[in-house]
Design a protein around this nucleic acid. Structure first.
Lengths: 151, 151
DNA sequence: GGCTTGCTTGGAGTGCACTCGAAGGTCATA
DNA sequence: TATGACCTTCGAGTGCACTCCAAGCAAGCC
């Protein structure tokens, strides 16, 4: 697929197996973001970020010497995935399950694949539903545009 | 647009302005469904149907001489629309607003049109998001399929 | 030292969309 | 006429995904 070695997949729970255009605010090596920086670049709230960690949806985030969270680029990528999955309507519990599988290492590849394939089917179904709804909306909008202008 | 006269649009709050393939269980005239019949053909629960009425999301449903609900084909069409709008993620409060506009009559055509156009934009955005997510899922699934098989 | 800003924790609270329960009335069939 | 399924109302309860709060620690600055 690409150059990312499989070991990288398991070296840290963040599960970066396919590179996006890596628009990280800082290059790897200088990536120690405070929670408010992560808030600024993800749009999530600090409350939500801490809550994600509490429920096991985030791999354990690194801390500063005073105990404050320091997020990495990898954490940002993970949050990006979580955000996308959330948009599909995937329940948080299922995402936690996926996070657990990632933590368990390479032995769970098959199960992860199945989970994502199920999600993929859900997304396709959802898109189909939305298309149908769009058709209804278009008919109604057309009606209002036509009838609304003739009276 | 089609043969449905504009007056029909306002004759009853159900707002049937664009005909779907009218797959109604019974022809107009014999359309007096009990709540459990509506449950069977919409997939909504009786609780939800009563609740929709309580919060003003349903036009007032006809009653039998003993006070039991009797739904019409028009009510079924309205529920179909509501179900579709719900799938778009539209908040119930917004749907109630739309229902109010329908109840107010033809004078609200423009506002209804704007509301639906906004919804339309939301749906398009949602589809775009889902497509992006789909791309990420495909890349990840591909990774698991490839890496998973070589180990 | 005092002030402000930003962070920590655990637990409690919120808003949405249902979902259920209790108490009782109605209706078709045996 | 009696049984049981089905209906009514209103109010309370549930589950999810946050969202907020209080109390307290730490760092930077005047």
């Amino acid at each position: 697929m690409q150059t990312t070695p499989a070991t990288l997949e398991d070296s840290h729970p963040a599960d970066i197996c396919s590179a996006r255009p890596p628009r990280h605010p800082r290059p790897d090596g200088q990536d120690r973001y405070t929670i408010s920086e992560v808030v600024a670049c993800t749009g999530l709230t600090a409350h939500t970020l801490r809550w994600y960690e509490r429920i096991g949806l985030m791999p354990h985030v690194d801390r500063s010497h005073t105990g404050q969270r320091r997020y990495t680029n990898r954490d940002l990528d993970w949050l990006d995935l979580v955000t996308k999955l959330r948009l599909t309507g995937m329940p948080v519990a299922d995402m936690v399950r996926y996070a657990e599988l990632v933590r368990e290492g390479a032995g769970t590849y098959r199960e992860r694949q199945e989970l994502l394939e199920q999600t993929r089917r859900d997304v396709l179904g959802r898109i189909a539903e939305l298309r149908e709804t769009l058709a209804v909306l278009d008919r109604k909008i057309d009606f209002y545009a036509t009838e609304g202008n003739t009276r």
